[in-house]
Design a protein around this nucleic acid. Structure first.
Length: 597
RNA sequence: GGGGGCGUAGCUCAAUUGGUUAGAGCGCCAGCCUGUCACGCUGGAGGUUGCGGGUUCAAGUCCCGUCGUCCUCGCCA
């Protein structure tokens, strides 16, 4: 008989009746009836009920076992009497009558319950992550993550992609997020950087003649956390395709993502091809470059209807170069006054000066602004919004960029409050045609996304167009309002690269010194190539229906980028610093070494 | 770095306008109980109300500061 187990706890069925089995697992719950004790023994696979009779020599000790201890039982599988069958348990038809037991690992009193999943403060959960991971919801999220990644590997391989590794210790890149740095012992004063993404390596693999690359790639960025952004590190399904167009990238991703989302959720998933929305159109209609398409509301322009309006609040905005945008919400005219007051307060909280509205209810128009509007204006608005009795139109007047942003926020809030978001579907879209350049804070032309993207129109566009009008073959994929990834057709021409950098204010020497590998490689026969890198954590988050990314990561850091279980980051020995030729020079605030976790 | 929420027993939470000895459920400890499966019943222990200061006859409650945590803005080529 195996030292620890002949079966898994979740295995036992009626067919095992009569067999002597050995099980090992955690004490999930103890039900002590004085004359008989029931123990639910739990492992990764399930629960089994073990019965301990008072005649057993170990009976006395069992009463004092703490839950979450690990124990090995040997005993006979018997059928439960009909009244004692538990239909909620896969193993509920049988139980194990213990004949021998061995304590494998005793548990202290646990700081929060594992068997009963009640809310618990997150600091404690992170300090005792190994206990939290035993709990069913987190445990099953991590199982889901493993299955999703395994399936992604199968699907990508079937599409002809090769999984390849790229370095973790690499060089710091000048653009993008802050790097995590690793000091070099061999080269005093020099540093490696952890890759923010394997971007340049995967492009080099294309130049190296590999045709289709993918990797479940760790990415390291020293940026502050959000609910959907884990600090420090995260994983991408990184991929790159040689001799490929934007459509080739879309086709593969639509196929793989549709398959994954269909297989691992009960929700309805958009069928390929996914909707493609130009960036500027997305901003105009949804006020966002990651619209949630489950929300049916769409912004419309009604600036001209207010240009000469007696409603000075709006006409004044228009006269000063601003715009008026409207959102038509069907069937919410009978919402209570509080609803409209709350919407106005919400709009103001996101920067609006106000929020106008028209309600078609009781055969008339109820609105604080209706009296300022001519009958023909009201008719024109009604026609524009396609509204009628029972409907409402909301209005935002501001300078264009602000109006779009506020309108986007109001659109999302209306969707939430009015229950317009179908929770049982995954709606995908591609946002395409991002601008190549934008103005930075100082009003200078800068890359708006990725300096490696191919400008649409090539050299001719770079030479002849206003840089701010040049579009890039740059795209995002969005699911239910979550940005899963950015990608691009890459700029594989050294001349185009130098020209693009020149427009952003960098000389050729900058390209050569900051991106020596790509600049050199592209001069020796580079294939046109394109790629993308959907976020694995976010995919699993959507599939698990979790609002927080930590719920799909086994060992996440807290918002301040600390690992409370391992105590990272921590101090190191002076010897280690000397070896690296490093001296720590703390700001006054930290002169007393902060206590480590 | 900025804004907001939260911080009361091991855990989750309650405590009227500032007013008696800060309570409950779960957990823990002890006892009882032979068919439970969130077992049940009885009893018990457990509190610097995050920390420091202030206002007040009186502070968990109000004010100031500080720390922790979460959400968010900045940031995320």
């Amino acid at each position: 008989m195996h030292r620890y187990r002949t079966h898994k706890c979740g295995d036992l069925r009626k067919e095992h009746i009569g067999q002597t089995v050995r099980l090992s697992g955690w004490v999930h719950s103890v039900r002590d009836h004085g004359g008989i004790i029931f123990i639910d023994l739990r492992d990764h696979y399930g629960l089994a009920q073990v019965v301990i009779d008072p005649s057993q020599p170990f009976y006395k000790g069992v009463e004092h076992w703490r839950v979450e201890s690990t124990i090995c039982f040997t005993g006979k599988v018997v059928a439960r009497i009909p009244e004692a069958v538990n239909p909620r348990l896969a193993t509920g038809g049988v139980e194990v009558v213990a004949e021998a037991m061995e304590m494998l690992g005793e548990a202290k009193v646990i700081p929060f319950q594992v068997a009963k999943e009640e809310e618990c403060n997150e600091t404690l959960r992170l300090e005792y992550r190994f206990l939290d991971l035993r709990r069913q919801s987190l445990h099953s999220n991590i199982i889901l993550r493993s299955k999703v990644i395994a399936r992604i590997r199968e699907l990508m391989t079937a599409e002809g992609f090769m999984e390849m590794q790229t370095p973790i210790l690499t060089s710091s890149s000048p653009e993008g997020a802050r790097d995590y740095l690793v000091p070099s012992r061999v080269h005093p004063g020099k540093f490696y950087a952890l890759p923010q993404a394997p971007q340049q390596f995967k492009q080099l693999l294309m130049v190296s003649g590999f045709d289709r690359y993918f990797q479940i790639a760790p990415c390291f960025r020293d940026e502050d956390a959000r609910a959907d952004r884990s600090p420090g590190e995260f994983y991408q399904l990184d991929m790159e395709l040689a001799f490929a167009t934007q459509d080739d990238v879309f086709e593969v991703n639509e196929k793989v993502l549709h398959q994954i989302f269909t297989e691992f959720s009960g929700k309805q998933v958009d069928a390929p091809p996914f909707v493609r929305i130009p960036y500027r159109e997305a901003m105009e209609k949804y006020g966002s470059d990651k619209p949630d398409l489950r929300n049916p509301l769409v912004m419309q322009d009604c600036t001209e209807l207010f240009r000469d309006s007696p409603f000075k609040a709006f006409a004044g905005v228009v006269a000063s170069g601003g715009v008026v945008r409207t959102l038509a919400a069907k069937g919410c005219a009978d919402q209570p006054r509080k609803f409209f007051d709350d919407m106005i307060a919400y709009a103001q909280s996101v920067g609006a000066k106000g929020l106008g509205y028209l309600r078609w209810t009781g055969g008339e128009i109820q609105s604080p602004i209706a009296k300022f509007l001519a009958p023909e204006t009201l008719e024109a608005l009604k026609a524009l919004g396609g509204v009628g009795e029972g409907d409402v139109m909301f209005f935002i007047a501001d300078q264009k960029a602000a109006a779009l942003e506020i309108g986007g926020a109001v659109r999302a809030e209306l969707g939430r409050r009015l229950g317009l978001i179908d929770p049982d579907v995954f709606r995908f879209c591609w946002i395409v045609d991002f601008p190549m350049f934008e103005l930075d804070d100082e009003g200078k032309v800068a890359f708006s996304h990725n300096p490696f993207s191919m400008p649409q129109g090539g050299m001719k566009a770079l030479e002849e167009q206003d840089p701010l009008d040049v579009l890039a073959y740059q795209y995002d994929i969005v699911c239910n309002g979550t940005e899963l990834s950015s990608g691009a057709v890459r700029n594989h021409s050294p001349e185009l690269m130098v020209k693009a950098f020149a427009i952003a204010g960098y000389g050729q020497e900058v390209v050569e010194s900051k991106f020596p590998a790509l600049h050199r490689a592209f001069q020796y026969g580079a294939p046109p190539h394109a790629g993308i890198a959907p976020g694995v954590d976010r995919i699993v988050m959507l599939l698990a229906d979790e609002p927080n990314i930590r719920e799909v990561i086994a060992f996440p850091m807290n918002q301040k980028a600390q690992d409370l279980l391992m105590g990272a980051p921590g101090t190191v020995e002076p010897r280690q610093l000397r070896e690296l030729n490093l001296k720590v020079d703390l700001p006054r605030k930290f002169e007393q070494a902060p206590p480590t976790a």
